[in-house]
Write a protein that binds this DNA or RNA. Sequence first.
DNA 1: CTAAACGCTACAGCTGGCTATAGCATCAAG
DNA 2: CTTGATGCTATAGCCAGCTGTAGCGTTTAG
Lengths: 142, 142
Amino acid sequence: MAAVTGLKIGEVSKQTGVAVGGLRYYESLGLIQSARGDNSYRYYPPETVRQVQFIKKAQALGFSLDDIGEVLTVHHQGDVPCEFVQELLQGKIQQLEAQISEMVVFKAELERYRDRWAANHPHPQPGDICPLIEAIPLTAPA
Amino acid sequence: MAAVTGLKIGEVSKQTGVAVGGLRYYESLGLIQSARGDNSYRYYPPETVRQVQFIKKAQALGFSLDDIGEVLTVHHQGDVPCEFVQELLQGKIQQLEAQISEMVVFKAELERYRDRWAANHPHPQPGDICPLIEAIPLTAPA
DNA sequence: CTAAACGCTACAGCTGGCTATAGCATCAAG
DNA sequence: CTTGATGCTATAGCCAGCTGTAGCGTTTAG
């Protein structure tokens, strides 16, 4: 009878707000680790709570579990992974920036079509169904 | 011989860059429509090419196929529902606006974390994985 | 002692937008 | 006429990040 100690999965769940199934999922990805008792129950070391909180925070920054796994791997190698996290973060920021400007451009485009219709109002040309729709860029904007 | 004319699916695929399976998927969602020949082949009207290009462009900028379907369904119905389309468009514009400001706020948040860490590399406390992430407050554990 | 609460595994399902496969029919070129 | 490209339907799988279910075993409070 090994002295298996630690938090049972429900306790970790309560302390982190992450559902039991979610924790099992994290463990299946290798993000957290448990010892197993004779009853086959998972027993987590106390620091698991902080690790799960770390996972949640990193997720809140837009990191995937894959990203987080890489960070934790660096951590397990005994290094402080901040440089690596910084790189990931910078990448996320640039991604966001690109998405934002795409959306701004597209919004301006939609506004242009909306306003053109509002100004022109119903001038359905022969063959047109709705000038507003016909004006939508079905081809690349010339 | 049936008077079925139009582009076969492979031709539409070549002209739009959308895979044959993707086009069948679009059709299954009602985004595009075909006539069927005696051979059960799909024959698409030429304007399908422009419609598919519209789908791709709208998609690239964050519109779901569901959204696109609403517009194209109106188009296919042959009605003149410009008022409705206008409303739909206005809704999308507002949604886009909301998404953009959300993303701008979030990007500023990420930049704040990045810059704070860059300005003052905190020392890892015992139990820390990366102070850059650890410094982030957990939002209410839901 | 009993029954609820909790744990386990294994698998299915969810969202969205496809892609891939199997097994067959049809078409177009040589 | 044959062959390879193309078409068809139906079904399954993929990505992420879980959630839910079935059917069981274990622990714990009364």
